[in-house]
């Protein structure tokens, strides 16, 4: 620390010294930081094992300083199941995007939830395939333009966007479901609290925990980071409302 300076903020020690590849304004970076702050606060760096997906966050293991496995597209829930079943005393999470969790991997998602696999899903829903260049996702909004829905998503052809929180909260075996966002500092703090609660419930062995981050994709949405926050508020939140969908009874 330089003389005359006072430390008022630093990134968690559980984030690695590695420059992130995420686009400016993307919530992946924010969510990584929030998660690793929680890991630091709970003191579980040596007890947590993560699974990253195929998608923009495929390199999450480069940033999170915890043991991790990189899964095939859509299979993070199955990989997390394998890890958690062998290490029930550890904390396990899957970190997945909407294409990964809600399209190609929806079978693994649904069955892991129905079995009440005691790990935490961190589900980044930005309504688009970011890594492959902005194609339509299962969560792309009605009328939203993407490279594969250039005239806007047509529900007659593509159905309506999947509401994953609403789906998984129906399982008895799922303990905790909350949809959060990082579009404002207040919401980011709420998101962090939700992640913390999810890990804590997992440590209590309560069943599957599912945190959806209603996220953005300035690059894929072809807008500025600021405009992406507006879009979230005006278009995404009305369809994907934030809030707790399910929580353990005693709390």
């Amino acid at each position: 620390m330089k003389e005359g300076y006072k430390l008022i903020y630093q990134k968690p020690k559980t984030l690695r010294e590695k420059r992130m590849h995420y686009c400016p304004g993307c919530f992946h970076a924010t969510t990584h930081k929030l998660m690793m702050e929680v890991v630091e606060e709970l003191g579980i760096q040596e007890k947590i094992i993560g699974v990253c997906p195929v998608g923009c966050s495929v390199f999450a293991y480069d940033y999170m300083d915890v043991d991790m496995q990189e899964a095939a597209h859509g299979r993070a829930a199955a990989v997390a199941t394998g890890i958690k079943r062998m290490h029930p005393d550890k904390i396990v999470f899957s970190y997945q995007g909407d294409g990964d969790l809600a399209a190609i991997g929806i079978a693994e998602t649904i069955h892991a939830c129905n079995r009440g696999e005691n790990f935490t899903f961190i589900f980044i829903n930005n309504g688009i395939y970011g890594m492959t260049g902005g194609q339509m996702a299962p969560t792309t909004l009605e009328g939203q333009k993407t490279t594969t829905s250039p005239y806007g998503r047509d529900p007659k052809k593509a159905g309506l966007p999947l509401k994953m929180c609403e789906i998984v909260s129906q399982f008895d075996s799922v303990a905790y479901v909350e949809r959060v966002s990082c579009n404002t500092p207040a919401n980011a703090r709420k998101a962090k609290r939700a992640i913390k609660k999810a890990f804590e419930y997992q440590m209590q062995g309560l069943g599957s925990t599912f945190i959806e981050v209603a996220s953005n994709c300035p690059s894929g949405w072809k807008c500025t980071p600021e405009e992406s926050l507006e879009w979230l508020k005006e278009k995404a939140f009305p369809y994907f409302p934030l809030g707790v969908f399910k929580k353990p009874e005693e709390v």
Binding site: Q69, A78, G82, I83, M86
Partner: peptide
């Protein structure tokens, strides 16, 4: 993929 996870976790 469960095998991948469990085997990767050392079992």
């Amino acid at each position: 993929n469960m095998l991948y996870g469990a085997g990767g976790a050392g079992a």
